Simulated assay, not measured.
Amino acid sequence: MTFKGELKGVYPALITPFKKNGEVDIAGFRKNIDYVIEGGVSGIVPCGCTGEAATLSFEEQKLLLEVAVDQANGRVPVIGGSGSNNTSEAVELTKYAKDAGATAAMLITPYYNKPGDAGQILHYKTVAEKVDIPIILYNVPSRTGINMKPSVVAELARIDNIIGIKEASGNPAQAAEIIELTRNNKKPFTVLSGDDNLTIPIMSYGGRGVVSVVANILPREVSQMVDCYLKGDFKKALDVYYKLAPIMRGLFIETNPIPVKAAASMMGLAAGPLRPPLTTMAPENQQKLKAMLEALGVLKKPRVAAKAKARARK
């Protein structure tokens, strides 16, 4: 599958469910993919930060990419997370994403090394030249320790197979500047929000959607918000946004993906434990998160309660 026209819509950055023994829960991963696709998302993004890619082995990342492509089965595009702070590793993972059948690859800026502008350009240019697959840049300074400047993004946007950016600097003005510098390019270049709570502001500048954490648990609602905005129904989009605003904040009261995996478990989705060094959500924060989900009416009903109601009806 290739992108037809513009990259836009909602792309959940998928969590990676694990079994109690620490192995990847492939069956659960497949079920979660079906859940978000049935919720109307535009595509899926396995093996990103939300998917705990930093603690996945190469073999696990490759397996998850294969499974994601297989389970999507052409229903939506698969954007494989294939970034690394090692350029040769990023090339290898991106090649594998292509070979596995991914529609595109998303590459985080090189973390820890903290390359300057020239180094960032060299990194992405090298991958783009060596792997013929659509590439989406991913800027998240809070994770990597470096910020990719709009001028750097604008230069990279001229490369044929670099088609967009997940902009998660937390600065809507930076997203606006990227759009300003790339909006008249000969080829399309798309800015997607990398922060759920900044989706509306970034779309107001010309962004076309979001790579979403919230869509792991509420794919239909996030898709409705973005779809309404794209269609010009701004009031409805804002109504949905303000309904989701508390949970958008709630999923970041601890380090992502700790809260979203806790929420997924509460809702009966596949999540399982976190990989160290991430730890279980603090009990007081679990209660806060549970209250938010209860307010949305999306918590999984306990089996005991469901059986009691069934007996009462009899």
Results as ranks from 00 to 15, higher is better:
Glu60Asp: 07
Gln61Ala: 01
Lys62Ala: 13
Lys62Phe: 07
Leu63Ile: 11
Leu64Lys: 11
Leu65Tyr: 06
Glu66His: 15
Ala68Pro: 01
Ala68Phe: 01
Ala72Ser: 14
Asn73Tyr: 00
Arg75His: 04
Val76His: 15
Val76Ala: 14
Ile79Cys: 11
Ile79Leu: 11
Ile79Val: 14
Gly83Ala: 01
Ser84Phe: 08
Ser84Glu: 08
Asn85Asp: 13
Asn86Met: 08
Ala90Pro: 04
Val91Glu: 05
Glu92Asp: 12
Asp99Tyr: 08
Gly101Asp: 04
Gly101Ala: 11
Thr103Val: 02
Thr103Lys: 10
Ala105Met: 10
Ile108Ser: 02
Ile108His: 09
Pro110Thr: 13
Tyr112Pro: 11
Pro115Asp: 03
Asp117His: 14
Asp117Tyr: 08
Ala118Glu: 11
Ala118Pro: 03
Gln120Asp: 12
Gln120Met: 07
Lys125Ser: 15
Lys125Gly: 12
Lys125Trp: 02
Lys125Asn: 13
Glu129Asp: 14
Asp132Glu: 02
Ile133Asn: 09
Ile133Gln: 14
Ile133Gly: 06
Ile135Gly: 12
Val140Gln: 03
Pro141Gln: 07
Pro141His: 15
Ser142Gln: 11
Arg143Gly: 01
Arg143Asn: 05
Thr144Val: 13
Thr144Pro: 08
Thr144Ile: 13
Ile146Asn: 10
Ile146Met: 08
Asn147Gln: 11
Asn147Ala: 12
Met148Glu: 00
Met148His: 02
Lys149Leu: 03
Ser151Gln: 12
Val152Leu: 09
Glu155Arg: 03
Leu156Ser: 00
Ala157His: 00
